[in-house]
Design a protein around this nucleic acid. Structure first.
Lengths: 143, 143
DNA sequence: GAGTAATTTAGAACAATTCCAAAAGCGGGT
DNA sequence: ACCCGCTTTTGGAATTGTTCTAAATTACTC
């Protein structure tokens, strides 16, 4: 029905990633990528899809998120046990995580640091460096 | 019965943390702290306790780990969705996480980095900086 | 359009963790 | 040493987030 012709980019990106551009994947990709950088959980995305009248199953949302992640379209960020965020920004960057609100926020790429990396344990190679700066709401009370 | 008189330190540390030195907490503390730095999950600790004939319930292990963490005796490290490690090293340090083996390893304190920290979002203060260097087993095949 | 393999689905299955109300244990005062 | 009140522990059920499964559907090739 209303598949319209969205940014052909999405379709292209999926193809390039070796993923068939199915209705569900396209719809989820649109939700994920057409609104700037996002940090979203599987359940949240599922909710958004349903709200947008895209009847996709939760299992498919999980499948899709993982496939996108493997394909390098997404990055998974683990901040709390039992909850995974997916970040639409796959550039090399890091995060603020607010323990009070559960909010995740990109750290502007440049503002970062990371000097000398220690060398990885024997027989292993570095796959990624995650920096999470945990913050909490400030004690605004001055009294 | 065989409570013996372990390093009075444990008892002292618990008291200092405002935690009643109950049998279970003492026993778990001993498992945790008398063998150098450890990275352990709740289930693992529970297993160790049972193996050591300390019949403690899993719920208590969870309670205890969280209380110890709040008291600053432990540090929680989240590397994978759905699994939490507790680190007996509470000094400022970081981690290697091997994606192939699931093994967590301290990064020698000095070998670290972290230069200029970006300032936290308005109204928040930094509570901690976690650096996790994800490594994977190297492609040993040279052919 | 038909055939085939990839994808989606709903729901069951799982794993880690938390919750619950009841039982047990700790420590202060006697 | 014994009581008492309050903290802690317990087992089991409940919850949460995620994965699995077998069957139905869909995308692409010819």
């Amino acid at each position: 029905m209303q598949i319209a012709s969205p940014s052909p980019t999405l379709l292209t990106r999926l193809r390039a990633a070796g993923l068939r551009p199915t209705r569900q994947r396209l719809a989820l990709a649109r939700l994920l990528f057409s609104a700037g950088d996002r940090h979203i959980t599987a359940e949240q995305l599922h909710g958004e899809a349903l709200a947008a009248s895209i009847p996709v199953s939760l299992a498919t949302v999980y499948n899709t998120l993982h496939q996108f992640t493997e394909a390098g379209l997404l990055r998974e960020v683990v901040v709390e046990p039992g909850r995974s965020y997916f970040d639409t920004n796959t550039d090399d960057h890091h995060h603020f995580f607010c323990e009070s609100t559960g909010m995740l926020q990109d750290i502007p790429g440049s503002a970062v640091m990371v000097g000398a990396l220690p060398h990885a344990p024997a027989g292993t190679e570095i796959s990624r460096v995650d920096v999470i700066i945990r913050v909490r709401r400030q004690n605004t009370a001055a009294s």
